[in-house]
Design a protein around this nucleic acid. Structure first.
Lengths: 363, 363
DNA sequence: GCAAGCGTTGCACAAATGTGCAACGCCCTG
DNA sequence: CAGGGCGTTGCACATTTGTGCAACGCTTGC
């Protein structure tokens, strides 16, 4: 079956029409939902298409429709557990609503976020989801003015135009402090990185603030990039001093894993007997038996699902199930108008729920 | 700056031309490398484009050229450390040669590999890279006949048409056996999964074969999907029996991590004193202090680079550096003709180098 | 000063598709 | 049997871009 000529090029609707003995319009209508074609010609067309290996050219199709079906995902450090899970979840949800993901990796250069947004515009993407990096505001406005959705994930820099999905880092970080404080910890270290991402800064600040309100001072260590190695290094630095901390809040699970390993391997410490640790993100490794890390869960599935609801909001012709996606976890979903000139995009903020495991002593 | 009308749609070259007072051809030529435009009109066009927020429509552009610039990456379990690293490396390399990656996630349905290949054709992708799953051969042929590259990664099922990049799983697995055998291990277990991926099967077989030649019998345990949980479960099963194995070859690092944790946490065993472990892939966690896993390194960077050289092979106009990409690691790069009707795609097989860490006793 | 040459510009057509409109044929009804 | 109506079909035009070809103008050399 499926005997096709060695054409060495893509098959066009014209060729199918000629083989089937109909007009090109008939071919087009055969592959258009709801178009008027008789059953006999439809059959002829489908047979010819199968024989030639024809597939509708979505690029040409999107010249006419507004909808290209492409959604651009822009991010760096895609090999990170958190980012890769997010990527996995988003791509899966996008396909469920007949979109396809275009991934632009902005690791490397600093100005690659700008190039990424340009690609988004070049390919007439339906929407742009920014997972990391901060593109210039003027380009974001160009995207929005072109009719794109621009969705910022976990970038708390309160820009005016784009839609944004965040996690309540500050509240969670405050909760982290109280978990450790209630467990009796008094010399608490904050382990962060030099990345300076808005979310990380918010976690540092939230924790620091809660500590201050309780009359405690905390030290912040930023040993390198956000990862296992930096956490390990931070552990080495902090635990070799004379007055060891009795707890650490690591703004990322990867940092926490590195920190824990340094404590155990390099200093023979016992977690949580000698040292309590709290992380953030709830990556898969946090639940591994070697770590059993108490942490805060990023609601990745809900984030991915909310993205799809944002995309569906302008495509009125949707036949989905009832909208029961986000229940009591939504902290704030105000989509009101603000600012001077432009209408602000909708904002939603999910709650990061604590996940109790074994790196914090029970009170 | 960048004052633009609230057009709510993408800007076309026509609008730029009208604003700049030139013909649309001039706009097109301004954004085409090597086209003949005077400096004055180029300036007028660029200014108008900046003002309107114009970006060339790559979809329309690829209607004329053969080259869409899109490369489809098809894979499942993208949140896995191995796959996410591969994805990260490939997307980065693709951007370096001015391609953009379209990611299709085939987790979930079983027949989604077929749908993925259809998407590839729909979007006139320049090439299709299959990271996992086995698409039907007829569709692969359609892709090839349409002028696409089809590149299979680590799928040792010797298909005829597509290009393939593999790692020499069999040789590495045999080496794994000899590492353990030389370390004095005699009751060796093989820990695998129920996935039945070609690479995993090759690793099982290679190890089993080497053991047989040495006069040893090995047991193969397949506790579930390829992941930490299945490794942990396998450890629980294997180590609770009366005659515990003294070594385990886990066909994946994730399985190895789970297995090690079961041995240590559930049974209080010491690695490598009581039990030697060898993994495969060299994921990041293998180098963490808690594991220090002896494993085999997948040459991810070289795989990604080889993909780009395959893509450049037909685009003769390339101005890259000298081709010094794959040195002595290449095992077999025969691209000869074989089979009856079709020309077989090029095949390359990289060597997976052993990475000695601390989970195997030194002899 | 005139003609040749060259750089630049615009027209028209190409690429692959969707769709409004008119026409055509068939069926049913009066 | 004729006419109206309806489903189907093809033509032509729309989408956005690149490019060959011809024309135009400016410069330069004789």
């Amino acid at each position: 079956m499926s005997e096709m000529k060695p054409g060495r090029s893509f098959v066009s609707a014209q060729q199918v029409a000629e083989l089937a003995g109909v007009s090109r319009s008939a071919v087009s209508r055969t592959f258009t939902d709801g178009a008027s074609v008789s059953e006999t010609t439809r059959k002829k067309v489908l047979e010819a298409a199968e024989q030639l290996g024809y597939h509708v050219n979505h690029l040409a199709r999107s010249l006419i429709h507004e909808d290209s079906g492409i959604v651009c995902l822009i991010g760096a450090d895609l090999n990170t557990p958190y980012h890769s899970r997010l990527l996995d979840a988003i791509t899966r949800r996008l396909q469920a609503i007949n979109r396809v993901a275009m991934v632009i990796n902005t690791s490397g250069d600093s100005d690659s976020a700008e190039a990424a947004l340009r690609q988004t515009l070049n390919y007439r993407a339906n929407a742009t989801v920014v997972l990391s990096g901060t593109p210039p505001a003027s380009l974001i406005n160009t995207c929005i003015n072109s009719g794109q959705h621009v969705i910022l994930i976990n970038r708390d820099d309160h820009l005016d135009g784009p839609e944004s999905i965040t996690v309540d880092n500050t509240v969670a970080a405050r909760e982290a402090f109280h978990m450790l404080h209630r467990a009796g910890c008094r010399r608490i270290a904050v382990v962060s990185s030099q990345a300076g991402t808005p979310s990380l800064v918010a976690r540092e600040r939230g924790f620091e603030q809660a500590a201050q309100e309780a009359g405690l001072a905390v030290s912040i260590t930023r040993a390198g990039p956000t990862g296992y190695g930096a956490g390990f290094e931070a552990g080495r630095l902090l635990l070799s001093g004379s007055d060891r901390p009795d707890a650490a809040f690591c703004v990322t699970d990867l940092l926490a894993c590195g920190f824990m390993d340094a404590a155990r391997v390099e200093f023979g410490m016992n977690v949580p007997a000698d040292l309590c640790v709290v992380g953030f993100d709830d990556i898969e490794q946090a639940s591994w038996a070697s770590y059993q890390l108490t942490t805060f869960r990023q609601p990745i599935a809900q984030i991915a699902e909310h993205i799809t609801t944002l995309l569906d909001s302008d495509n009125s012709a949707v036949h989905n199930g009832p909208d029961v996606h986000n229940g009591p976890d939504v902290v704030s979903g105000s989509g009101g108008v603000s600012g001077s000139g432009g209408v602000s995009g909708s904002r939603i903020c999910f709650h990061a729920a604590p996940v109790w495991r074994r790196t914090v002593r029970p009170k």
